[in-house]
Amino acid sequence: MSTVSPDARVLEMHAVTKTYVDGANTVTALDAASLAVDAGEMVAIMGTSGSGKSTLLAIAGALLAPTSGEVAVCGEVLGQIGVRDLARLRRQRIGFVFQDFNLLPTLTALENVALPLDLDGASSATARSEARRALAVVGLRERARSFPDELSGGERQRVAIARATVGRRRLLLADEPTGALDSVTGEAVLRGLRERADDGAAVVVVTHDARHAAWADRIVYLSDGQVVDETRASGPESLLSGGAV
Rank of each mutant, 00 (worst) to 15 (best):
T165N: 10
R169V: 06
E176L: 05
G153W: 02
D175H: 03
G167E: 12
L173C: 01
L190Q: 08
L190W: 01
V184K: 13
A162T: 12
D175S: 07
L181W: 02
D182V: 02
D182L: 09
A164K: 04
R163T: 15
D175F: 01
L171C: 08
L171T: 08
G179L: 13
R156N: 02
I161D: 00
A160K: 02
R169C: 13
Q157H: 03
G179N: 09
D175K: 07
L173D: 03
D175L: 06
V189P: 15
V189M: 06
T185G: 05
V159I: 14
E150A: 06
R169G: 09
R158Y: 02
P148A: 07
E187Y: 08
A160I: 13
A188T: 14
G186P: 12
Q157Y: 00
T165G: 15
R191D: 09
R163P: 14
D182W: 11
G179S: 09
V159E: 02
L181R: 05
G167M: 11
T185M: 14
A160M: 03
P148V: 13
T165F: 01
P177V: 09
S183H: 15
T165R: 07
T178E: 13
A160Y: 03
E155Y: 09
L173T: 05
T185N: 15
R169E: 11
S183C: 12
I161F: 01
A180F: 11
G153D: 04
D182H: 10
R191S: 10
L151P: 02
A174C: 04
A188N: 11
G186V: 00
A180W: 12
A164G: 07
L171A: 11
R169W: 15
A180G: 06
V166K: 10
G186N: 07
R191K: 07
P177N: 12
R170L: 05
S152L: 10
R169D: 13
T185K: 12
T178Y: 12
T165I: 05
S183Y: 15
R168F: 00
G153F: 03
G167Q: 10
G153T: 01
V189S: 08
R170M: 06
G167N: 12
L181K: 07
V159R: 01
D149G: 05
D175I: 00
E155K: 06
L190E: 05
E187Q: 14
A160T: 09
R158M: 09
G179M: 11
G154R: 08
R170S: 15
A188R: 15
E155R: 06
V184M: 10
S183W: 14
G179C: 08
G154P: 09
R158C: 10
L190I: 00
R158V: 05
G179K: 10
A174P: 02
G153H: 03
A164C: 06
T165V: 08
A188D: 15
E155I: 01
V166Y: 15
G186R: 04
R170Q: 10
V166P: 02
I161S: 00
R170T: 14
A162Q: 05
V166N: 09
P177F: 15
R191V: 14
Q157T: 15
A164M: 04
P177L: 13
R156P: 00
T178P: 15
R168G: 05
L151V: 01
A174G: 05
G167H: 05
E176V: 01
L172W: 08
I161W: 03
L171F: 14
D182S: 05
T165M: 15
A174Q: 02
R191I: 11
E155L: 06
P177A: 11
E150R: 05
P148H: 10
G154F: 03
G153L: 02
